[in-house]
Design a protein around this nucleic acid. Structure first.
Lengths: 135, 135
DNA sequence: TTTTGCTCCTGTAGTCGCTACAAGAGCTAT
DNA sequence: ATAGCTCTTGTAGCGACTACAGGAGCAAAA
């Protein structure tokens, strides 16, 4: 049994964030010591670590909630998990593509921006009705 | 002179978002008609369009505020603008790389997840102390 | 002219995923 | 005993919106 500081260290989730997850019902509030402190079991810490990894993978909390319940459920969870992972992959790919388009636009605007000129081509383009760069 | 609905249409910024920008002081509140409605000039609409384009390029509001003031200032703004654009490019590249790492991790986890098995390798890996996939 | 239905106004609260702070109680090491 | 860390609850803030509620105004059809 570990206090919240240890649980935070072992899971990699900040103390404040653990409390936030508990408030939001993403993970259950653990039992307490006589003095009213939360005490975490190894299982509860594993759950926190799971949440952290999923967040790092870009899953929103609502999806993580579902994943946690699939995990508790045992059984034919794998198919659903895989499909959620694939949805997430699609979302990540979309984000990457949109950032790449953005980068191209910014690079082209930035390249037009030379040092000596009195007005700024980049600002002018962004202000104009028909921009020189597609977004 | 255009009412807020037209200004929204012409700039591509949602009405509520225009009001939000005005509340935050990013753009000035326009003059009013006799009946108390905001009336937007072409210039004010251009400013809104500028803010929209910058937001689409991923600039935060604080940077946009600086860009707007550089634009008003006239003069040797171009160099500073270019440097801000380059900072933004660095940030975008970092985001793209981190998303690509994420994608690799998710793909590898998802690939391990086959349909028939009773427990889910992906969930197991995410729950375990030493994960099979680097983040 | 009245009525219908759109637009506009202000103000407030909600979103997501935290993060920070305050004021107090408890626990541990010297 | 004391110093200094850790824990508790509660609340407010972040960025960039978005979504109401409740009311006023305005333009065009009947």
């Amino acid at each position: 049994m570990f206090a919240i500081g240890k649980a935070s260290q072992k899971s990699g989730v900040h103390i404040e964030t653990i409390r936030y997850y508990e408030r939001e019902g993403l993970v259950p509030k653990p039992d307490r010591s006589a003095a009213g402190r939360h005490l975490y079991t190894a299982d509860e810490i594993a759950k926190l670590r799971f949440v952290k990894r999923c967040r790092d993978l870009g899953f929103p909390m609502s999806i993580i909630q579902t994943l946690l319940s699939l995990n508790d459920e045992q059984g034919r969870s794998c198919k659903e998990v895989k499909s959620m992972a694939e949805d997430q992959l699609v979302a990540i790919n979309a984000k990457i593509e949109s950032l790449e388009r953005l980068r191209a636009a910014l690079q082209s605007l930035s390249a037009s921006c030379d040092e000596g000129t009195s007005s700024c081509p980049m600002l002018d383009s962004l202000m104009s009705e028909a921009p020189t760069v597609p977004l």
